[in-house]
Amino acid sequence: MTSIPFYRLFKFLLFPIVRDGDRPLFSPSGFATKVSVCMVPVAVMLYALAISVAMQMGLVLYPFNALAVGTAITATLAFTISFAVTYINSVAFQKLLNSYEKFVHLSRTDPLTELLNRKGVSDHVDQLLSPLDVAIIDIDKFKSINDSYGHAVGDAVIVNFAGTLKALGERLGLCVGRLGGEEFVAISSHSTGNDVLPICELLRSIVETSGVNCDAITVNYTISVGIAHGYDNESFSEVLHRADAALYKAKSLGRNRVVTA
């Protein structure tokens, strides 16, 4: 029972007071204000104790005035000094926190497409309910696009497809990412009720009937997709391996198709 006041004080001090949507943000001014408010009564009590000792020693001629004026001055100084010191340190902490968050974002994000990279996909999968459906998507004959038109056009094709995949993923609640090169992934939990097969057929159709305009050049491309439906207690890596085998089969059958394992 005695720990409850300390828990409430801890929660009061550290609970973020600024929010960006559902994401809590650290507020240096808010944190400094809370610390300063807590320091004022501590400083006042110490001052009152000092005055009491001074009175007993006969060093205070006007105790009431000393207590009233001294308390006001002590409270003001305690709040001001505590706020200044805490705010300066909180700003430094916020910069460190922002740097860490930026580092985490960069470590999980593909710089070209802004999709999750392989690590980001693996981290996100841990938050999904199994079993999972996994689709590995490969841009057909991407090397020949690079060789024929150059890497700038190849990057434009990658970005174009990533945008299409991301838009479809956001609309249907899929986890999408870039595994590397021209290979992408789309993941759906069975709990969402989405059937990955028609979604991938729709994606393939959209890509087939659209092109990429870059430097006055229009490039048409297609995709091949391998799908694996996960089973209970089957790990993500196992489902991914079966999806990769289905992708290999789609390529061997002539590309521009969706194959299920």
Score class of each variant (00 low, 15 high):
residue 2 T to V: 14
residue 5 P to N: 08
residue 7 Y to E: 11
residue 9 L to C: 06
residue 21 G to E: 06
residue 23 R to V: 12
residue 24 P to S: 08
residue 24 P to I: 01
residue 25 L to V: 00
residue 35 V to H: 08
residue 44 V to H: 04
residue 47 Y to I: 00
residue 48 A to H: 12
residue 50 A to W: 13
residue 54 A to P: 04
residue 68 A to T: 12
residue 69 V to H: 08
residue 73 I to Y: 02
residue 74 T to V: 10
residue 76 T to Q: 02
residue 79 F to G: 11
residue 81 I to N: 02
residue 83 F to G: 10
residue 83 F to D: 11
residue 89 N to P: 02
residue 89 N to S: 12
residue 91 V to L: 13
residue 94 Q to D: 14
residue 99 S to W: 04
residue 100 Y to T: 13
residue 101 E to F: 05
residue 102 K to E: 14
residue 106 L to R: 15
residue 112 L to P: 01
residue 122 S to Y: 06
residue 124 H to F: 09
residue 129 L to C: 12
residue 131 P to N: 11
residue 133 D to M: 10
residue 135 A to I: 08
residue 143 K to L: 06
residue 152 A to I: 15
residue 159 V to K: 00
residue 160 N to Q: 05
residue 160 N to Y: 03
residue 164 T to H: 11
residue 167 A to V: 01
residue 170 E to D: 08
residue 172 L to Q: 13
residue 173 G to V: 09
residue 175 C to R: 11
residue 176 V to S: 07
residue 177 G to I: 13
residue 178 R to Q: 10
residue 189 S to H: 01
residue 190 H to F: 12
residue 191 S to K: 15
residue 196 V to G: 09
residue 201 E to G: 03
residue 202 L to G: 12
residue 204 R to V: 06
residue 204 R to N: 02
residue 206 I to C: 05
residue 210 S to L: 01
residue 213 N to I: 11
residue 217 I to R: 04
residue 220 N to W: 01
residue 226 G to Q: 00
residue 228 A to H: 00
residue 235 S to P: 09
residue 240 L to W: 02
residue 243 A to G: 10
residue 245 A to S: 15
residue 247 L to G: 03
residue 250 A to D: 00
residue 254 G to E: 02
